[in-house]
Nucleic acid binder design. Structure first.
Lengths: 160, 160
DNA sequence: CAGGTTTTGTTCAAAGCTGCACGATCCGGC
DNA sequence: GCCGGATCGTGCAGCTTTGAACAAAACCTG
């Protein structure tokens, strides 16, 4: 039976899936310990802080976060309750609304970022040499690009 | 401000976090489409199928899955309802119980595995050359090992 | 510009998950 | 043996996530 995946690739797959799970868990725990933010919270803050006007349309934000629309609605309302973001109607499309970073949100991000980045360094990056970093970048850039493309084309029934 | 993470490492981190998120989403969707199993379901089946007697103590299973105890309880009951596993009291420790793979569970795994592995291949592995596979294995093996160690030592207050 | 179609975001119910408190058992010293 | 503390798994309340259904606005086409 062609069960795919030769043994070296299977080993790679297993190592990857376990370690990435653990890494995610660890980073989220670190984040929560020293910032009262969840990983999604943090990610939203980063994206908004980098956006022009520190605001993004819900849809745009959702697709960058890889969140379902309903999940984003929930996420943003939750952050809104805590004062990290606010929501404003979109001027040029009355259906839409945009999430806007508040001063408190920016502050929370500024406080959290150093700890979070340190956490990424100590758990992951410090242990990698430059060649490994380059390899990861190459591999995951390609992967991301490919997955982004395949999802779009499956949503858009233009291909058939 | 020493915000850690030089720019090449930051790029690596961003590529990694986005692509791994997308990959996970895609694999889970594929799995659900052609097997009616979630990723956790599948993982449980794999671990049980490889265990001696196709059974594992709840705690052992939880730690391999990186699940909280209560999550595992929930997960296993759900799979039990669907007939994929059963639960038996542990012979030599009356507190414990073990999850046991059922015939239906094994069958479900046998049916799902080829599709899932194909999915892993097409989305990830087929695009990697041998050097990249070797690099991933090395990196994530080390990472997993390190994280496994750090979690144990933080649980065990022996270090201080 | 009327009609149908698409896009945008929300809502709701059901399922999943977390953290904590708990009952049961086991283990170590006395 | 017996008490105190550790370990094992479950139960529960509350939060998060999903998927489908939906209302509102925009778009498109004749």
């Amino acid at each position: 039976m062609t069960e795919s995946l030769d043994s070296t690739r299977e080993a790679a797959w297993r190592a990857y899936i376990e370690a990435s799970q653990r890494l995610y868990t660890q980073l989220e725990e670190d984040l929560r310990v020293d910032s009262d933010l969840s990983f999604p919270d943090y990610h939203v803050l980063v994206l908004l802080s980098e956006a022009p006007g520190q605001r993004l349309r819900m849809g745009e934000l959702a697709s960058r976060l890889i969140f379902s629309p309903s999940r984003l609605t929930y996420q943003v309302s939750s952050m809104q309750r805590r004062g990290l973001v606010s929501k404003e109607p979109c001027p040029d499309d009355r259906r839409g609304s945009e999430a806007v970073l508040t001063a408190a949100g920016l502050l929370a991000l500024r406080e959290a970022a150093p700890h979070h980045l340190a956490s990424v360094r100590t758990h992951l990056m410090d242990d990698l040499d430059d060649a490994e970093v380059a390899c990861l970048t190459r591999v995951f850039d390609r992967l991301g690009e490919r997955l982004r493309a395949s999802r779009v084309s499956s949503t858009t029934p233009a291909s058939r």
